[in-house]
């Protein structure tokens, strides 16, 4: 009985992780091509005649970007947790049901179409990517339902096929696009952070945080569901309801992340695994902790992306894979006895 997850331990671990996140965010916001001193930042924005450059850089450049990295990391990691549990597949990640190709298709349509309006301060790329992501998940989900209520294989196959189809359309559009359009699309597809409007960020962060809290409340049911739908149902879990809620939230927060930062790979796959390897598979712990660890991971990765070859910048997706791969392999070898799928 002592091995069971207790609320106090769950809160303590998550609290510690949140503390680490704050420290990491603060540290990373002081790192960059310009030196920023925290003391100067706290002295305020300065008066009109003489603006305080430290404050300007910190508040208008660094902070938004770090908040963005954190919210995208948290969203992708939690969404990965949900998809791995629902699909009962350790290879699942947030993009497995076609969100990536749907968002990519939306983005490239916006680029090739030469759209240049804005909606609530958002570029057409972001708006189209968001719509494309959600539309694709809805399409895959509907096809999956036709193949049977309890079987995830149909859903997975539908996701794979829709992914392949949309990727082909993306390549077709890329091949007929002008070269500067192609460049901006590829840059977007690689996953890229940019300084965002603060209001958009806070709304996005609010939605993601709300989604993660909601996921926490269905996390015991996610535990049961990882034994399969029929087992979960006979234990009294309303699987149709839990699945719909979990899919909707996971798809929603992924769509938000993707529309803000493009396709950042790897976070949604390895962060859930890393957390599971170290802390065990209980989703009550997995959901909050993966969110925090995902945020820390992406904040660090993005800081590296903007400093390694400064003043130029790397796409953050490149860093997540290069940084995350080895770290994950070390964890895998060290902790593999704890988890079933590497037996």
């Amino acid at each position: 009985m002592d091995q069971l997850l207790r609320p106090r331990r769950m809160i303590a671990t998550t609290g510690l992780a949140l503390g680490a996140l704050v420290v990491v965010m603060l540290t990373c916001s002081l790192i960059g091509s310009e030196n920023v001193s925290l003391k100067a930042v706290f002295s305020g924005s300065g008066d009109q005649s003489k603006a305080n450059p430290d404050y300007e850089i910190f508040v208008r450049v660094r902070l938004p970007r770090i908040v963005l990295a954190g919210l995208v990391g948290a969203a992708l990691a939690c969404s990965g947790v949900v998809f791995q549990a629902l699909l009962r597949n350790p290879l699942a990640d947030p993009y497995i049901l076609g969100i990536s190709s749907g968002a990519g298709l939306g983005a490239i349509i916006a680029v090739v179409g030469g759209l240049n309006w804005t909606l609530w301060g958002r570029s057409p790329i972001a708006v189209f990517a968001f719509a494309g992501a959600l539309g694709t998940v809805w399409l895959v989900w509907s096809i999956g339902r036709l193949t049977g209520k309890f079987h995830v294989t149909g859903l997975l196959l539908a996701g794979v096929v829709v992914n392949a189809f949309f990727s082909a359309v993306i390549m077709f559009l890329t091949s007929i696009a002008k070269s500067e359009q192609v460049y901006s699309t590829i840059f977007w597809l690689m996953g890229n952070m940019a300084e965002e409007d603060l209001l958009v960020l806070w709304v996005g962060a609010g939605c993601v945080a709300g989604g993660i809290v909601a996921l926490f409340f269905i996390s015991p049911q996610l535990n049961a569901l990882s034994f399969g739908a029929e087992d979960a149902r006979s234990m009294g879990v309303n699987i149709a309801r839990i699945r719909t809620i979990a899919f909707a939230i996971a798809a929603g927060i992924t769509a938000i992340a993707v529309s803000l930062s493009g396709l950042i790979g790897f976070v949604g796959l390895i962060v859930p695994h890393a957390v599971r390897l170290v802390f065990g598979p209980d989703h009550r712990q997995m959901v909050p902790l993966s969110g925090v660890v995902g945020a820390i991971f992406l904040v660090v990765a993005d800081t590296l992306a903007r400093t390694i070859i400064a003043p130029a910048q790397l796409p953050v997706g490149v860093v997540t894979a290069i940084l995350g791969g080895p770290v994950f392999l070390v964890l895998l070898v060290k902790h593999s006895r704890k988890v079933g799928w590497v037996k």
Binding site: L4, A85, F216, P220, F227, S234, P281
Partner: peptide
């Protein structure tokens, strides 16, 4: 049911406790 093995490495006690899932408190414990 016949032989169902979960994909994640839940322990024996965690598995048995899942039978109580519908009776957990709102915080999920």
């Amino acid at each position: 049911r016949q032989e169902s093995v979960p994909i994640f490495g839940f322990s024996v006690v965690e598995t048995v406790l899942m039978a109580r899932t519908p009776y957990f408190g709102t915080a999920g414990f």
